[in-house]
Write a protein that binds this DNA or RNA. Structure first.
Length: 109
DNA sequence: CACTTGACTTATT
DNA sequence: TAATAAGCCAAGT
């Protein structure tokens, strides 16, 4: 889909598809886009996602379920707060039972 | 125009 | 087991 889209646009599209109460990783998104090693670009794209409103960047964490990008949010607690609001347990900036809340973009098909 | 940095991940030493 | 190298692609300096 949207192969003509920019990498960023593709990332945004996938991130928007993340269901509430679920999270995914940079690598999973990158891999879903066909670029496994482009996980850094996913993060870079997220940095630009501030211009958008339908991009729940707080649902995107690193492979350990750690809120690495929390510092890029409005406030450090913003990311944790948003995740907690969706029913995702976050302790010490780390998602608990991360694998249970993990959502694979490719899962939709 | 070339080099460095960046919200990452996997593999190798 | 821990530390280092490499890979990804784009933007900033």
């Amino acid at each position: 889909m949207a192969k003509d889209m920019d990498f960023f646009q593709a990332v945004y599209e996938v991130v928007r598809l993340i269901p509430p109460g679920k999270v995914t990783t940079y690598g999973a998104i990158a891999q879903a886009l066909g670029s496994k090693g482009a996980a850094r670009m996913v993060g870079w794209a997220m940095n630009a996602s501030h211009s958008l409103s339908d991009v729940p960047a707080h649902r995107v964490v690193n492979r350990k379920g750690l809120l690495t990008g929390k510092m890029h949010f409005e406030d450090e607690g913003a990311m944790k707060r948003k995740l907690m609001a969706e029913g995702i347990p976050v302790v010490d900036d780390q998602i608990q039972q991360f694998e249970s809340f993990f959502w694979d973009p490719k899962e939709l098909g």
